[in-house]
Design a binder for these strands. Sequence first.
DNA 1: TCTGGGGTCCTAGGACCC
DNA 2: TCTGGGGTCCTAGGACCC
Length: 425
Amino acid sequence: MYALVDCNNFFVSCERTLDPELDNKPVVVLSNNDGCVVSRSKEAKDLGIPMAAPAFKYKELFKKHDVQCFSAKFELYNFKSQRVIEISKAYVDKTDFEVYSIDELFLDLKSFKYINIYDYCVKIKDEINEQENIPVSIGIAPTKTLCKVANRIVKEFPDKFNGVYILDTSEKIEKALKWLNIGDVWGIGRRLAVKMKDNGVFKAWDLLQKPEMWVRKIMGIQGVRMVNELKGIRQLELDAPSPKKSIAVTRSFMEMLTKKEEVRERVETFGMYCSERLRKQNTCCKMVTVFVQTNRFRKDLPEYRKAMTRILPNPTNSSILIGRVVNELFEAIYKEGFHYKRAGVFVNDFVPEDQRQISLFEEDTQNQHLPVMKAMDAINKKFGKDKVRLGSMSGQNTFGRAKLSPEYEAFLKNNTLPEANFRFH
DNA sequence: TCTGGGGTCCTAGGACCC
DNA sequence: TCTGGGGTCCTAGGACCC
């Protein structure tokens, strides 16, 4: 069996560890720029605040019900995430876990044949709660997809299951799938949910009644795997941690930017963050993409969006070399006369730092840069982000963070934060 | 006025090869 | 002029996840 440990409304729960006064009150956490809702307490959900709700649309509601709003504090969430992972993984053999996202991890319970795994998971849940003050739900099942189902059941019936549910017998599975809406199955997004309903598939169970050919046609190979997983036939193993295959740094700006130099400064900064992350995992990239775009919601202003990609003659992770390319691409796509709202830099097509294939014809200065870059990283790690930076960076954050609490300032002072170590999906 | 950010995987179709 | 059949690799875009 697998177990999925999932933190309940994680970002909000992290906020509550800083301020217990927030317990039992409606709380939301907002994205960068305080743009939209990314985490909601149960009380906030009950008020009808949807996920990803644009904050400005709900201002009145927030006020009326005294909803507590916070800007996202990723240093804090990463820190708490690490703690939850440390506690959970101590309950299984060395590699029998997979960190799935910042607030979820799978455990492989295969080595526990003679203990009651339900009780065991209750212990995990209780320890996380006692040590870290983070409430979690644990779903246990033979496949990852069914773990997700079990987890949803835990969250849906909190009084009934006390945080842990085990989905093991075929009777229980059938009952669960007849209850679960098709749109809530792991891997069914908005698009597929519509297609499913058009074809009379409303519950997860209905999907299992469809012929394999149909599933294959509508959903591709993923669909066939999904059906098997729902039947309890394992298709997905736990993944070992792996280096990233692409890295992106993108931001919406607090204000729309109309000056070329302001936008340039932003994308160059994004390029440098990409380079830092590349060095952190000891890889070089062979491709760099830059994009800029206007505010797509402002129908009264002319819209413009453009992206451009460059394939590099020599793979690199030097901030200077990547910055140079970013700048050239920026020059090629930037057009005067627009109000820019968002921009970003992507890097992909990675090779390990020590396995670079060098072009015969282009000069390669990566190795000259590397020692300086690594020194820069070391200094920044010791003394703080952006303490040493390129001359092209302003060193200022141009996104807003209105609502930092005093508790959080204290947290930043008193804690040494570990590096983030989880995969996004 | 104000609408997030960072990832992965799969597929179809084009380019190219013999 | 007409024109086959089989394969691989790459890429852009779609769909999904948290």
